[in-house]
Design a protein around this nucleic acid. Sequence first.
DNA 1: CAAAACATACCGTCTGGACGGTTTTCTGTC
DNA 2: GACAGAAAACCGTCCAGACGGTATGTTTTG
Lengths: 186, 186
Amino acid sequence: MSKAHHRKKHPEAVRQQLLEVAGKLSLEKGPASVTLDAVSQAAGVSKGGLLHHFPNKLSLLDGLFVNLTEKLDRAISDKMRDDPEPKGRFTRAYVSVFFQPEGMEDGEQWKVLTIALISEPHLRDRWRQWVERYLAENVGTDSSPDAMLVRYAVDGLWLADLLGSPTMDSAARAAMLERLLTLSRS
Amino acid sequence: MSKAHHRKKHPEAVRQQLLEVAGKLSLEKGPASVTLDAVSQAAGVSKGGLLHHFPNKLSLLDGLFVNLTEKLDRAISDKMRDDPEPKGRFTRAYVSVFFQPEGMEDGEQWKVLTIALISEPHLRDRWRQWVERYLAENVGTDSSPDAMLVRYAVDGLWLADLLGSPTMDSAARAAMLERLLTLSRS
DNA sequence: CAAAACATACCGTCTGGACGGTTTTCTGTC
DNA sequence: GACAGAAAACCGTCCAGACGGTATGTTTTG
């Protein structure tokens, strides 16, 4: 009889922990390392415990996806709320959420989204819907060619960061940030 | 005794076929679907046959990576050779190789690179070296902020294509292409 | 005391890969 | 050009471990 069995129960915390661990694992050791055994063990729960929260692996990955997009929604909304200028508002929020100084804890989690999206093709449809919704909501203010250019560039930066390819020193990053924000207003 | 055993042998063709199938599979059904069984079967070879060309799974993925980067090298060199203007030459080659009309057979294969890179963290080092080499070879002509911006935007477009997120209609794509090429010269 | 939140044990399948066999192709020799 | 090896290019079988998932318990909580 393990001690874990007797500890206080915090179902919501355990659930969150499982999702975090799953993300961390896929980021650091690749999506193939996200097994029920590995995740549950790293989260300090038994496999049975994991399967109580997520009845199968798909629902675990689904939960990860939902969790991330919800956080993303909040992060973007927060940034948009503080921006008085309507034109390019969404694009600027997009920039400041994704284009953060390297190694920032916050930025790390979005990388997991890309990994999940690429390794689980079935999530792509839902991602497309997410993108479409934001595009539709901000048509007019953020559909100029330059705004799109900016957002795509951010995606590229994001990908380079994820792949660990060399990007820029912090000075160049700061300059790039300025350039992006300027373009979002043009 | 199967018929396949008696057919003509084309080792190089079989090898290529195996790599192609592996790429196609990971693109369409996700990297998890790239198993030795699935690849060998789809390529019309036995698993033993596969393991003759690639002694283990790692070497198969490695072969895929090498194959793709070599093709990429050739594609970029070709484009650069036809470009008389030194400034931004590499960036323009980069654009024309990666930013192709949707659904173009040629462009599809590079997507596999991203998938491989994300699902196999051990390849990232080699990718970094690839990027570093090109960056070093073209320092001076292609290291301006705008050139980098362009290349990152292309990466972003590439990623969006890969994820199937909505991008642009062909008119907008053409306009974007123009914009990118202009920026590469600025 | 019922339901939620876990743990433990177990099972069928899949996967990577080792191994030995068979057929074709190559290589040198006459 | 013929012919014997030798090597390369496959095939088929088998296995140990990993993996996802089930079934059944035990403890905690409301």
